[in-house]
Design a protein around this nucleic acid. Structure first.
Length: 720
RNA sequence: GGCGGCGUAGCUCAGAUGGUUAGAGCGACGGACUCAUAACCCGUAGGUCGGUGGUUCGAUUCCACUCGCCGCCA
């Protein structure tokens, strides 16, 4: 078992992983968030002298992929490879410093998983049994309940299945897991997730089905090829197969396993905190040191837009503001572990106030003065070692900055080490604030007018202090904003930051006499049109799943394809190792009282004549479309509500409609209806409704009568 | 339904084992400055600390209930 630091005194190792991303969805900001966090931590640890190994990759097996590929007219291999390469291309474009990118379709992984299966089997933790129950094909999930039960995750009706499965003796690990949690309080972070996991295990563990015979797209069970290994066991094993588990070269495994930090999204904590450790225990492998679950990234609807906006592509932000801006925003704005929200508005706000006005401007004003007053050469400072005592006021001020820098460095380091990125950055930026205040208070531009040698020295002290602070801030910010930090490093005349030793950041490390490099803006202020530009870019790329891309998307004006439902139905899938899931933003608080009610929840409109006339533009805001009902069922404990799944041709979505008193579920299936497609999502009885069925309201009771057409109309068609 | 969490200034959030004027950043407003990316600096902002009731000399901080939101319960 590898130790943290071996005897030769070589560098301590640090193995960090992200989940492997399921190729059923194309990369979006949620994936980016997880991966950026991992990259930042990897860079931080590297800079502090660790031998870092950073692993990411894609999860490519399962029935869902098999089906998506078939729809797209591709083989599962082709399909998975296509999406996997999109992920990889995005990470490469962002300059993420992963050391390995594993795909579960690779031979090394397959071999490793089969080896793991065999080991568990030999050690008596796997047996064959029969499972009969409800199964959600979409989520590849077994569900409790009688036949006809809806899947708790996606709402689809489950299928009754009975199949021979291999089972893993998870029940045997209940006590051992609880003991482990007890003895390793930091194993699961944050605490809220840990408590949930502990509660779950305390509730009792049943054995886990780990194979399927109902489809083929997976890794065959060794010696029983009718079975493929269930995606979870397959996916989780990536963390060790990437290091060579099951191969004849144990070098990496011995060196890097166990992982130091495994980053995950909170929705997959059970798999990583219960199943995964149990598998490892069963295989007699050490457990990861910590599993850190972050929150979800919610997308805030921009106030200016119609009812659009959900899945944001990282590329959009990269195009307009650059990777550093995105990285900074995600890590500064969101408290790691908690849910956070993203909006173009907040992004530009942060960018301007922190990066442009804060860091960028500080660098600019300081280095410009060094050029102006000292010919671009870092001046000699005597206070560098806190020894300059001839000018008490100056010394105090400069020493003050020196100690602030020292204090903040400690605070920032603690923040990064604890994955508390937002607080680390807060500390770093508070140092920027101190230096700005210091410069303004000591007003070097005034002193520069004096010819007194004492003042000349005073000026040198001030600018040295500012420049040295910038060096330290830049080094500490490097893990988060690597491109900008590299630029500033060169401007400071320090060369290539990737070659610099940032392990120790002693005050005074900036050598007087250093010739500054070429100056130039690091974070130019974002203009007002930045938000619009990003929105326009998004409009050009309607959010799509991999499935939808592969299918032919009907010719719909792209600006009209912004659908809240995309998020819940297509993107948040509870499948395997997932990144930050993307969830729709709940309606803004102030908008709540006005949230449009779906279906006949709305009060019947009595007299249209009484209403003021509207302009055509007003009508155009309402997106009416034809959809076909695929699934209909009663909502338990709600007399009037039906849960519908309607198909718009380009997407499926769930709508909860108050029409149960007038229509039976069976009568609706296959029926074409008119829906308001751009209605903000709303929850009814805990179910999210993404749209509203259009119906006439008849009689005193307002009995709903569904709108329809005399001719057959193709689904997805818009009513104008 | 069971268990747990949250609800504090326009926005994002801190905070207190209960006790003088409840904090920060951003935004807004006023002022100052000119080295700098219309940037920076200074000042101002009165938020019933979700609601009700209780314990207490005193609660936003403890308790009960209640409303709203969220997570976990294979």
């Amino acid at each position: 078992m590898p130790t943290q630091e071996n005897k030769q005194g070589s560098r301590p190792k640090f193995f960090i992983t992200t989940p492997i991303y399921y190729v059923n969805a194309r990369p979006h900001l949620g994936h980016t968030y997880t991966t950026v966090a991992a990259d930042t931590l990897a860079r931080w640890k590297r800079m502090r002298g660790y031998d870092v190994y950073f692993l990411t990759g894609t999860d490519e097996h399962g029935q869902k992929i098999e089906r998506s590929a078939a729809k797209a007219g591709k083989t599962p291999q082709e399909f998975a490879a296509g999406v996997s390469s999109e992920f990889r291309a995005l990470w490469d474009r962002m300059g993420l410093t992963y050391d390995d990118y594993i795909r579960t379709t690779e031979e090394r992984h397959k071999r490793g998983v089969q080896h793991l299966f065999t080991v568990l089997q030999e050690r008596g933790f796997i047996y064959k049994g029969t499972y009969t129950g409800q199964y959600c094909v979409w989520d590849e999930l077994y569900v409790e309940g009688p036949p006809g039960t809806a899947c708790p995750d996606c709402g689809r009706i489950t299928e009754t299945v009975s199949e021979e499965n291999y089972f893993f003796k998870l029940s045997a690990f209940e006590r051992k897991l609880l003991e482990y949690y007890e003895q390793h309080p930091d194993f699961i972070r944050p605490e809220a997730r840990r408590n949930e996991v502990v509660a779950f295990v305390r509730g009792g563990l049943r054995d886990l089905s780990i194979s399927r015979t109902s489809f083929n797209w997976g890794i065959p069970v060794p010696g029983d090829e009718r079975h493929v290994i269930y995606v979870w066991m397959d996916a989780l094993a990536n963390y060790i197969t990437a290091l060579g588990y099951g191969s004849d070269d144990p070098t990496l495994l011995e060196k890097y396993w166990p992982a130091d930090v495994q980053l995950i999204g909170k929705e997959i904590s059970r798999f990583h905190c219960v199943y995964w450790p149990a598998f490892l225990m069963a295989a007699d492998l050490p457990l990861p040191k910590s599993i850190v679950a972050h929150g979800w990234l919610l997308f805030e609807q921009s106030k200016m837009s119609k009812s659009r906006g959900n899945i944001v592509r990282a590329e959009t932000v990269l195009d307009v503001l650059g990777a550093d801006a995105l990285r900074y925003f995600l890590l500064r704005e969101i408290v790691f572990g908690q849910d956070g929200s993203f909006s173009f508005d907040a992004l530009v706000q942060r960018y301007n106030s922190d990066l442009a006005n804060g860091y960028g401007n500080l660098v600019s004003r300081t280095l410009t003065m060094i050029v102006k007053y000292f010919g671009g050469v870092v001046p000699e400072a005597k206070t560098a070692n806190y020894r300059y005592k001839e000018n008490a006021v100056l010394t105090d001020a400069c020493e003050g900055i020196g100690s602030v820098a020292h204090f903040q460095e400690i605070s920032i380091s603690i923040g990064f080490d604890n994955l508390d990125f937002s607080h680390a950055l807060e500390s770093a930026w508070s140092l920027i604030g101190s230096v700005d205040g210091f410069i303004t208070a000591s007003a070097p531009w005034k002193i520069s007018e004096s010819s007194d040698p004492k003042d000349r020295q005073y000026l040198a002290e001030i600018l040295y202090t500012a420049a040295e602070s910038i060096r330290i801030i830049t080094a500490l910010a490097y893990p988060v904003i690597p491109d900008a930090a590299a630029k500033v490093w060169r401007q400071l005349g320090l060369g290539d930051i990737t070659q610099a030793d940032l392990k120790e950041l002693q005050w005074g490390g900036l050598k007087p006499g250093t010739k500054l490099g070429q100056l130039g803006p690091v974070f130019p202020r974002a203009e007002k049109d930045a938000i619009t530009r990003m929105q326009e870019l998004e409009d050009k790329y309607p959010a799509q799943t991999a499935t939808e891309t592969a299918k032919q998307v009907p010719a719909i004006p792209v600006t009209e394809v912004a659908i809240p439902a995309l998020v819940t139905k297509e993107t948040v899938d509870t499948h395997t190792t997932h990144p930050a899931a993307v969830a729709p933003t709940p309606p803004a608080p102030e908008a709540k009282p006005h949230a449009p009610a779906p279906a006949v929840d709305a009060t019947p409109t009595l007299a249209a004549a009484e209403n003021p006339k509207i302009a055509i533009e007003d009508f155009a805001k309402v997106e009416l479309r034809v959809a076909i009902v695929r699934v209909a069922e009663r909502v338990p404990k709600a007399d009037r509500l039906l849960r519908l799944e309607v198909d718009l041709g380009y997407e499926q979505r769930q709508i909860v409609a108050g029409i149960a008193e007038a229509y039976t579920p069976e009568s609706l299936i296959g029926r074409k209806v008119v829906i308001v497609a751009n209605l903000a999502p709303r929850k009814l009885r805990g179910l999210e409704s993404n749209g509203m069925i259009v119906a006439a309201s008849v009689g005193e009771k307002g009995t709903p009568v569904l709108a329809g057409f005399l001719e057959d109309v193709e689904i997805g068609a818009r009513l104008k």
